[in-house]
Design a protein around this nucleic acid. Structure first.
Lengths: 414, 414
DNA sequence: CGTGTATGTTGTGCGCGGAAACAAACCACG
DNA sequence: CGTGGTTTGTTTCCGCGCACAACATACACG
């Protein structure tokens, strides 16, 4: 966090907190801002006036009056700038361009089979997508605040993001460096589970919660951990690697090389192959098949005893995994998402809750809600797009605006 | 965190950060303080001057000069105030009185068998201990900044601390309320594993580390999680309950009622009874015996194949538990402490590291050090005593000092 | 003992937020 | 339709805190 020492830093933080409030809560009156930020009304007026002059904030109607002057509402100018969110996912690339209200203005999808993705190919796909959405939405490059990218793997920040993505065969790929050769805009790269977590925290099932965990179940299994409304990153920002925590010592073999990992029990591939192990069947499964097969399992569980058993096992292991998170992190809410998570929690949420209850300590469990994710799989791109917005709000606006001339303008206009 | 809005808050934070630096790093020159806090030398002089006048800080010698005026060093006045740390542990009560340099000025120990501890008895023991150490150290009550208490169980903060301690049979005991009837001083109550974690962070094996986990292995098994140099508490401050995370689905029965908890494999009682299960032996083990038996296991592991097997198993499970923490929290350092942890890591640390390496992801594991705790079991009381100090430093000194008169004094003296 | 060098302190000015006075916008009621 | 009451928004003034720069201080060295 930036240190706060001089009087001018005060202005910067007050600007920033006002912007955050306005962004997350929508249109607010000046008194609401004052109450939320703790500054006097006079200062709110002052700060808001500055923000309006610079175009970051616009007036948006009046409240109903109850006898006196009606409260004027202000809100963030949705068209002040634009952001791009990129999802490099398990099944496809998705590039979306948003305004600040997170309305999708343009979208570009391209699918690939990602068993072995060449970094250079990924760069090409992403750059193409970015150029495409900018052209489609017809926005000026200088109005784009930044680009956020969610990748399938651990992201290490040293001299730009370095990606370790086992599932796509990436070992210490300097993805940020590669991209910067073709993209001049500000880039922020993070793990896809983390960006999904951010999306659910800002706009989905974890909205308004201080401490939450968003579990992402797909082929891979991961989490985004929200602590004090912020992503928990750990020392080298690889925190939340839930999929390879051990739930059975000496258990099933996992693709990571260890044994008994959670992913080896509740990952999409594990679910399907477990059913084959019980029922017999072809061993050749492509990734696209996985979705169909998981759906089929859920649909036929009333008739297919093996399917019922598999889902029962999955529910148990998922419950154990969640219980471990609850014991260790003591969150207020656990959100189950990702395409496998969505489907499972759609039909089996009570059983998942029960399994978690059996394995968690009573006290932390009594304070936690286990809910289904509200946003779909596209939320990874949405969450990625929130990364530059988060920066933008924390900086209190664009970095370039020199506060001095702005003050002059105001003075002259008086 | 307190919000920072007015210009006066600036002074308060600068005071506080200066105090923190001085406390954690010892005697510093004014320029060092300036560099660490980011304020100008003039302001440092100003703030330090105020602190010296109020007696919180004293001058402590000069540095060697290399040509110019020698740097004057300042440090926190160790005798400005005193704190009391209390450890309500598995085997005894320990009450200690410290000065701000954490020198023990008086100590009071009383042991009990804690299988069923009456809250009222605990209150009596603690109050007696507090009165005793105050009398022994011959300090004035008004010079005591506060009392910190580490308890064996989860602490919930609502209307004062409420303690849930299964191992001592406490279910929602309003311990703070009970104590306040007899103690007028400021009280801070927290989980013993967390206070130990704080002690190792400030003075022990996790000193200077931003993200660390201190594992406490005794009869119970818990952790103190340090994130950004602060204790991670979660939503209701029960975070870090490691002992009852599941490492074997459908595994050994645990005293908590669930199955396969880590504590059922590496807790002191589990270790001893596992050896009995293999070797046969009397089923009657008191808590005091446990220490002897664990020591015996370690001493005879070269000759006793069963002992070797038990320790091998324990090492494996401990490694798995640590690996799970590493994957989820991505710390820079894991400190193994508690009396069982100390003994195990004394002799088996390489094996523990190897077991963790087998089960953790490569990337986070490559950034973590697994080390032995530096402080003994008494550190729970030490850590508890840091709680009021932490408050004191964050407030920038005692709450009562009105800044206005102090300024007057200075002006008059000019 | 003077000169050079680095440290500590003392004014001065700028920018910030708070309090209070003031201006503005609306409702209600006669 | 106008006036008083009420609530909101703006402006002015003041105190405060920090940065900058000039000044005072303390030591080493020759």
């Amino acid at each position: 966090m930036r240190r706060l020492t001089t009087v001018r830093d005060l202005r910067a933080t007050n600007r920033s907190t006002a912007l955050w409030e306005l962004y997350l809560r929508g249109a607010l009156s000046r008194q609401q801002i004052g109450a939320a930020t703790g500054v006097s009304l006079a200062t709110v007026s002052n700060v808001v006036g500055e923000l309006i002059e610079q175009g970051l904030v616009i007036e948006s109607g009046l409240e109903e009056s109850n006898g006196g002057r009606p409260r004027g509402l202000v809100q963030v100018n949705e068209k002040y700038g634009f952001v791009i969110g990129v999802d490099i996912g398990e099944t496809a690339f998705l590039v979306e361009l948003f305004d600040l209200a997170m309305t999708v203005l343009a979208s570009h999808r391209s699918s690939t089979v990602l068993t072995h993705l060449e970094p250079e190919d990924a760069v090409t796909h992403v750059v193409e997508g970015i150029e495409q959405v900018i052209a489609d939405a017809n926005v000026s490059t200088k109005d784009i605040i930044g680009i956020g990218i969610g990748v399938p793997g651990v992201v290490e920040h040293r001299d730009g993001a370095v990606v370790h993505g086992q599932s796509v065969g990436w070992d210490a790929v300097p993805f940020e460096q590669l991209l910067r050769r073709h993209v001049a805009l500000p880039l922020i790269i993070d793990n896809g589970a983390k960006t999904l977590g951010q999306a659910e925290t800002w706009f989905g099932a974890a909205r308004g919660v201080d401490n939450a965990i968003i579990a992402l179940l797909g082929i891979g299994v991961g989490t985004g951990i929200i602590s004090n409304r912020q992503l928990y990153r750990g020392a080298t920002s690889s925190a939340g690697e839930w999929g390879h925590t051990t739930v059975v010592v000496d258990g099933r073999e996992c693709r990571c090389g260890a044994r008994g990992c959670l992913e080896a029990y509740i990952g999409a591939a594990a679910i399907v192959s477990r059913h084959e192990e019980l029922a017999g069947g072809d061993q050749h499964v492509t990734q696209l098949d996985l979705e169909v097969r998981v759906d089929h399992l859920l649909a036929t569980r009333a008739d297919d005893a093996f399917a019922a058993q598999v889902l029962d096992e999955v529910t148990t292991y998922l419950g154990v995994g969640i219980a471990n998170l609850v014991n260790l992190f003591n969150p207020q809410r656990v959100v189950v998402g990702g395409w496998v998570g969505q489907r499972l929690s759609e039909e089996l949420l009570p059983q998942i809750r029960a399994a978690a209850a059996r394995n968690a300590l009573r006290l932390p469990f009594s304070h936690v809600e286990i809910v289904r994710a509200e946003l779909g799989a596209d939320a990874v791109a949405l969450g990625a797009a929130t990364l530059p917005i988060s920066d933008f709000l924390s900086r209190g606006g664009p970095a370039k605006i020199a506060p001095q001339p702005a003050t002059d303008v105001r003075r002259r206009s008086v």
